[in-house]
């Protein structure tokens, strides 16, 4: 487990070590899983009821597969913690948050003031996601 620098949850952080996506299905007592860019997030869907933490690793911030993984989990109703881990910086925070991440554990700690500003970048959004923000077309048409 990697400690989150920023967390948008009130529940107690999961202390269990995150197991790899490959072995998660066999380890029926595991509640934390870590997925790498090449892992299929949909393979976790049968196990959502026992998952409390998903760490999504970004070995390099330019590899955007983790954004799709996050949305797929949220769209399937996953409500546990979704933690972005690795090469994550302030300039990615907003999009990550929109895709469903609610915890951030960057390998290089972020300046908290920069991070706060980053989350507030967009007054509104064009696309709906599971974060609940009303897209601009919704604001236009009710």
């Amino acid at each position: 487990m990697v400690e989150a620098q920023i967390r948008f949850r009130d529940d107690e952080p999961v202390g269990d070590p995150a197991v790899t996506a490959d072995s998660f299905g066999d380890q029926t007592n595991a509640s934390a899983v870590r997925i790498e860019p090449g892992d299929d997030a949909r393979a976790l869907l049968p196990h959502l009821d026992r998952i409390r933490l998903v760490e999504v690793n970004f070995p390099g911030f330019g590899d955007g597969r983790g954004y799709s993984a996050a949305r797929i989990l949220r769209e399937a109703g996953y409500a546990g913690e979704l933690r972005a881990v690795g090469d994550v910086a302030v300039d990615q925070l907003n999009a990550l948050r929109r895709c469903g991440f609610d915890a951030f554990a960057p390998e290089v700690p972020m300046n908290p003031a920069d991070a706060e500003r980053a989350f507030a970048t967009w007054p509104d959004v064009y696309q709906p996601t599971t974060d609940g923000r009303a897209p601009i077309w919704k604001l236009r048409h009710g």
Binding site: G64, Y67, A95, L96, R98, V125, Y126
Partner: peptide, 13 residues
């Protein structure tokens, strides 16, 4: 254009 602008999932294709 509006859909694709600042798309949160597709900024690191």
């Amino acid at each position: 254009r509006q859909w694709s602008s600042f798309h949160p999932e597709f900024s690191y294709l």
